[in-house]
Design a protein around this nucleic acid. Structure first.
Lengths: 135, 135
DNA sequence: TGACATCTACGAAAGACTTCGTATAACTTA
DNA sequence: TAAGTTATACGAAGTCTTTCGTAGATGTCA
């Protein structure tokens, strides 16, 4: 039974670097993160250690410079985060969340077309899945 | 410049009750919240006091039993929360967030139709706004 | 081998979050 | 007005998050 792996804000920033790099040493993570936000090497190291304990990242300590990588994919983590937000702020309604985003975030014509395409796909699936089932 | 009013998890639970009731006394909030999650009166009171300091709720202390109400609408708070998630986990791309939700959350045919309608609306707007502009 | 550079480990501190116990004030009513 | 009820205020404790400083281990190379 997997624990609720919800990374904190600072942990997420590190995960973002790891997702981008695939895997990286503390040094690499620190250098990348430092471009965006001033931080010290040991702070990054500490987070990586804590996150290892939590199971958020995995460590290869075969060499002197340990190599870290995210334990969960970005998609899996996004799912956790979105589910959490859904529960906490949208009473679990994915529809309400999507509506809210469409209403508040300016969306280009291209993007709208993208979403429309996705809906068509999803509708096809829904139809397939319902085939043979009695409503 | 308004501060970043991002309620914590426990604060959000209380806000949810306030949004539902419009306004309420500590007693009312406690009773409602207690149905969902065991909590004590003084804990709820303490949160309401802290949230008053933070400006998350407003208090009418004309009577003995103070009456609280959310300082920001649910929509405003949702916007804050979604923006935060967007930045932290989706590199600011609303499109990616919507795609993720559509891919991971089972969505009924009715809901898909709802979203499609919204997109049509949004496309209309986009067209209006772009009128006269050179692409 | 000794000096220097590069890493990890450990621990501590500050602040935020969450919860609750106790004190105190105000109101009611007999 | 004294007792009982209903509220708020205050403060403290425990946990989690975030940040760093210092120590110690390991590797390099002249």
């Amino acid at each position: 039974m997997t624990k609720q792996n919800k990374p904190t804000a600072a942990e997420l920033e590190i995960l973002a670097v790891l997702w981008e790099f695939g895997s990286a040493t503390v040094k690499e993570v620190h250098e990348k993160l430092n471009e965006i936000k001033p931080t010290t090497y040991t702070t990054v190291l500490k987070f990586l250690q804590i996150m290892t304990e939590k199971g958020l990242v995995e460590r290869d300590d075969a060499n002197k410079a340990h190599i870290y990588r995210a334990a969960l994919s970005q998609e899996q983590t996004q799912t956790t985060l979105v589910s959490d937000l859904l529960e906490k702020a949208f009473r679990g309604s994915a529809l309400k969340l999507v509506q809210h985003v469409l209403e508040t975030k300016p969306t280009s014509a291209d993007e709208l077309a993208e979403i429309r395409k996705m809906i068509t796909e999803a509708e096809k699936q829904t139809k397939d899945e319902t085939q043979g089932e009695k409503k």
